[in-house]
């Protein structure tokens, strides 16, 4: 391993690493082991005991009486994730590219586009909940006055799902644009100028030069946005729809906006005491996350990690 090892000490490096090590061991590695242990047990809510059941929890989820529910939850988590990532990154890369052109006021536009960088899922959810409240929300007041309609945003299945997707995409715009703008600073101007002299139009230049040059950043954002869709979106969903409403057939086995992490908290903390199932589902998410991380490291190259955990 390449290093700049200038100092020699047997003890000091371990002392410097010790605090991080203890924290990771106790609060990440030990719970990760416990997640597997719990997923192999079934708890008895009345006796407060846990019984070893092998892989029953896993087989129950995908072949048991409630398999339709768990399969639906997995499918809609990926559908939601794909929409949030696709729409979010598409819009952000275009806006960031436009805002980094040499035009008057570009600095102001950049600032106006990135200032909601720190917006939280819960606050985004709270504002959308109020705006789109079917009875008292301003959106429906306006729609009622203009067209005489009052869509039931929060309890019509596909409307609620779309609303959650739109709120999530909007919430991530500032974040994505910040990172695209930072990456755009490193795209050499000469490349674009040379292409322009050779007669390439702006759209051609975007697809042939800018977008490929940004691909490491796109990979990084793909990862952070998927992490958002898998985990952090919980706050937004919890506030706007609470995982509901139940969809039309064949999506009637669970709330249409129930993602995997939402189902984990329902099973683990919803009073049913299904900690075994919750832990098993958590492990399945962990597997997906691991696959995505490996892909991001392999194809994203050795880039800086800016998401956090």
């Amino acid at each position: 391993m390449k290093d700049n090892a200038a100092f020699t000490s047997r003890v000091l490096p371990w002392l410097l690493l010790l605090p991080s090590f203890i924290i990771l061991l106790v609060f990440i590695y030990y719970p990760a082991i416990q997640a597997w242990v719990l997923s192999l047990h079934r708890s008895n809510l009345f006796l407060g005991t846990r019984r070893f059941v092998g892989f029953d929890n896993f087989t129950f989820m995908f072949t048991g009486t409630l398999s339709a529910k768990y399969i639906q939850v997995v499918v809609q988590t990926f559908a939601y994730g794909a929409l949030v990532v696709g729409l979010g990154l598409g819009i952000s890369v275009v806006l960031a590219t436009l805002a980094s052109q040499d035009i008057r006021g570009a600095r102001i536009y950049r600032l106006l586009l990135i200032w909601p960088f720190a917006l939280s899922p819960a606050v985004a959810g709270t504002i959308f909940l109020f705006m789109f409240n079917p009875d008292i929300g301003s959106v429906n007041e306006v729609l009622d006055a203009l067209f005489g309609i009052k869509p039931r945003w929060l309890d019509t299945p596909y409307l609620a799902f779309s609303l959650v997707v739109i709120a999530s995409v909007w919430k991530n715009l500032g974040y994505n644009i910040v990172f695209y703008l930072a990456a755009l600073q490193n795209v050499p101007k000469e490349l674009n100028e040379a292409a322009a002299i050779d007669g390439a139009g702006p759209i051609q230049r975007f697809f042939r030069i800018t977008f490929p040059m940004l691909s490491p950043m796109t990979f990084f954002l793909l990862f952070t946005n998927l992490t958002f869709a898998f985990f952090e979106s919980f706050g937004l969903i919890d506030i706007v729809t609470k995982g509901g409403p139940v969809g039309p057939e064949p999506f009637d086995a669970a709330g249409l906006t129930t993602t995997m992490i939402y189902q984990v908290t329902l099973d683990g903390f919803g009073g049913s005491g299904n900690t075994g199932i919750a832990a098993a589902l958590g492990n399945i998410i962990l597997l997906f996350t691991a696959i995505i991380t490996v892909l991001q490291f392999r194809y994203g190259g050795r880039r800086v990690q800016y998401g956090d955990n």
Partner: peptide, 14 residues
Amino acid sequence: TLMIPVEVLIVPLF
């Protein structure tokens, strides 16, 4: 540990 977001561990971490 980058691969293991805390959210996925809430049940055991709890």
